[in-house]
Design a binder for these strands. Structure first.
Lengths: 240, 240
DNA sequence: ATACGCCAAATTGCATGCCAGTCTTATCGT
DNA sequence: ACGATAAGACTGGCATGCAATTTGGCGTAT
């Protein structure tokens, strides 16, 4: 490579993995953090230069993301960050609701003490962020809360599926977080889920979590309606 | 390439797609048909020769399959067809049960007439195969039955996730089909699901389907127990 | 002035070559 | 004879070069 190792923000922490795995991880983070928005085109050469590697690992990373449904291939027109239609989004939330409900039920039976601690900590950070109206901190802690439950289910398959889905809808979920009142109503819901899990009441945990995520979906619905009235159409992908 | 385009079993049907997509599809089929068993090692060069392409598209295909969880990377030891532990398998069935239940519920509300026809046809083929004790035909028609419901849910996200999961557990599901009595008990269960969907009764469809798939999982549990007593350990991946 | 067509530049897709890490085998030493 | 170490072959990882296809622009003709 002529420009060789010339990338600005490089020499990152975990260089032990393979380059392609590294690229996968970084792209996921960039998408999850909202730095790459749905519909953004992903140029192989640009990414290769940005990450300081050749096109091959970038291509392999993109293939993996495509298999996850995070990016979509448009033939010769390259790949772009997956753009979910409104219908897709609502569908995705219905799937996420079921999977998170299942995770909660299994977590209620299988959670271990270190995950209890982690869950409590995440819940408290959530509450503090909500009180401080710090949306970004809340978003982060909220992810941690749900991720902890996913891990505590001790169901590897479920955890994988949930992670994929979470990343896929994360850009939209982030937007929902900015909805007024969303943070405040989340806190007691989280509390109920956590209590049910700690009580070992899988049925209750499952039910409350399903409602919690479904409400997120409804919040999304409201948000889209609001945006449409505001004339801000560009966040709405395709309306079919 | 010196040996160039000379591979034995070629002249690929649908050559319109990209080569890597082609390889993905073929490998999925081979795994689904049981020609490649869990634990089988996947050698890049051998696959490249088999499919008459170079290593690059093969590598990309393997990356995609790895992202789907269908194959796993074992560091420098190459990739192999994913080998699910007993715990993983039971977990996978619990996830599949929830997703299929959701699909049934949504299908009850959204199914279209052509899918009704397709579902009825699949059901009848299933019943005929069960009566004829044709395990392979039943396996095929059973896939068709579940796939049709997945499609009829008109939930793209759900359909994708379900497809991934189905392929992943298909080798094991096939084995279950050989369990005595399994086919016969499936028919009325399918019938109940189908009736509930046709009635538009999502709750009932969901409930029956969940039980149906869960029973599959229990059948698996029985099967494994039986095999262990028979001393046939090699089908049991890792018992942790 | 607009529309159609052709040419050029860019971008993706595939192939091949090289390198690094790992597993195997053979030889040497105890 | 057995074990350990080193050398060689094998396999996966990455980079780069070449071909094919699409896109955008420019020129010409109506």
């Amino acid at each position: 490579m002529k420009s060789s190792l010339r990338s600005v923000a490089e020499i990152p922490a975990e260089s032990t993995e393979s380059l392609s795995a590294n690229v996968v991880h970084r792209l996921e983070v960039e998408i999850l953090k909202g730095q790459r928005r749905p519909g953004d085109r992903l140029d192989e050469r640009q990414l290769a230069e940005q990450f300081g590697v050749s096109r091959t690992p970038v291509r392999e990373a993109l293939q993996r993301l495509a298999a996850s449904g995070l990016v979509v291939s448009r033939g010769r027109q390259g790949l772009q960050v997956a753009q979910l239609s409104l219908a897709d989004l609502l569908d995705a939330f219905s799937v996420a609701a079921e999977l998170e409900a299942l995770a909660s039920a299994q977590a209620a039976r299988r959670i271990r003490s270190e995950q209890r601690t982690r869950l409590e900590a995440a819940h408290e950070v959530c509450a503090a962020a909500a009180k401080a109206r710090d949306v970004d901190a809340f978003y982060e802690a909220n992810l941690e809360f749900h991720e902890t439950i996913s891990v505590a289910s001790h169901n590897r398959i479920l955890h994988d599926e949930l992670r994929r889905l979470t990343v896929k809808i994360s850009p939209y979920r982030r937007t929902i977080t900015y909805q007024p009142g969303r943070m405040d109503s989340s806190i007691p819901e989280h509390g109920q889920v956590m209590d049910a899990i700690f009580r070992g009441d899988g049925a209750a945990a499952s039910q409350v979590m399903r409602a919690h995520v479904t409400l997120l979906g409804e919040g999304l619905s409201d948000l889209l309606h609001f945006l449409r009235m505001s004339g801000d159409e560009n966040i709405i992908a395709e309306l079919t």
